[in-house]
Design a protein around this nucleic acid. Structure first.
Lengths: 205, 205
DNA sequence: TTGGATACTAAACAGCGTTTAGTACATTTG
DNA sequence: CAAATGTACTAAACGCTGTTTAGTATCCAA
């Protein structure tokens, strides 16, 4: 009997309906304003219904978290055709900065918020999405080593170090901590620093 | 007449009383649990009273923000006696990592939270505390240049680049994004990456 | 047809930051 | 000294929040 299958399908559709509404509100109005009640309103169900499909708000945010990483990986796909590994790494950095600065709410969700992590913690899943993205970086770094750009060989350590820098730069910008340089040339400073960092890894790794 | 002065003093004492209670709760229970109602409870006043001394919660958090920076600068003071500029810079990095990892809630408040920034924004003050700390870094970097350690001369850009890395590393750790390396050697990885970064700036700046 | 699973919700719980209206007391003024 | 003004404080409410409980319909299997 296909009834169980249909129910399963309907359940999945409902999960998707909720996630779409949540995503829309999250992207339009930001995290602060993405409340369960508002999501419920948007899909014309009661707030309690949402809890029949997601155990809590953290799990729902984890759903958006997954989508955010998909979007980032999609943008990283643009760098694949670049044949020179180092040029590919540099372009990956540009894409990272671009993604972060243009999607502050998503970036926050992906790398700063506690909520989606806590959803994973209690089910001791692992942080798959983040790992896949980190692997993408590691792959490019490994190519740089193979092509003789770097003398260092600890791919994981090099990748973590590069990511740390990129993440710090983007976060300082996004969280308004660059406003201390009173002029309004924050994005210029981001680019300037990135140029210096590229020079650094080129000459010293 | 000294009445105005006494009232002024009492007002300041009350502000301090509130701040001390807020600080205690913040350090013990973290940001999430630091509510106006709980602070009011601790000092045995009504929640509304707090609003006679702080315009809103953001301004109160900014008070803690100021103290957090004082504490950090205090720990940075330990590096002053180190005569070699580069060794001083490296030790400053160690202190930064130590402060961040041992005071996660404070670090969050200082460099990640929106709240204390928003308090400044509406009064268009500037981010003095952060600037002073950044200046401390710039001073050490300038010394490194003078001592011939670096060939680069843009102190601000070098400092921003170094801070970006440090901040990224600490944030990745604090926000649990290093848990993807399933083994439990996160702090070890932090040190390993820092060692690599030190090598990088030594050979390429 | 009946009985139990399923889908859903109204209402409540316990918390939040903040504001309003009003009281009690301290101080200044006539 | 009494009346008027100003100050310090708070109870209660407003409008939110995430989440749970209890109850009502509806669907489906026996």
């Amino acid at each position: 009997m296909g009834i169980a299958e249909r129910k399963e399908r309907e359940k999945e559709e409902m999960r998707e309906l909720i996630l779409r509404a949540a995503s829309k509100i999250f992207l339009e109005d930001g995290y602060e304003k993405t409340s369960i009640r508002k999501i419920a309103d948007a899909i014309e169900y009661s707030p309690a219904t949402i809890y029949l499909y997601y155990r809590d708000k953290n799990e729902l945010l984890h759903g958006l978290h997954v989508e955010a990483f998909q979007k980032m990986m999609q943008e990283f796909a643009q760098i694949v055709p670049i044949s020179d590994p180092f040029a590919r790494l540099v372009e990956m950095g540009h894409q990272y900065i671009k993604f972060g600065t243009q999607n502050p709410e998503l970036y926050n969700l992906m790398f700063l918020m506690d909520a989606p992590m806590e959803s994973l913690a209690c089910r001791n899943e692992i942080w798959d999405d983040g790992l896949r993205t980190f692997d993408a970086l590691q792959a490019v770094v490994a190519d740089c080593i193979k092509a003789g750009y770097f003398k260092e060989t600890n791919v994981e350590n090099i990748s973590l170090t590069i990511w740390s820098y990129m993440h710090g730069l983007v976060t300082i910008y996004l969280k308004g901590r660059m406003k201390m340089f009173e002029d309004n040339r924050e994005l210029e400073r981001v680019q300037q620093s990135f140029t210096l960092f590229v020079k650094m890894i080129k000459t010293s790794l």
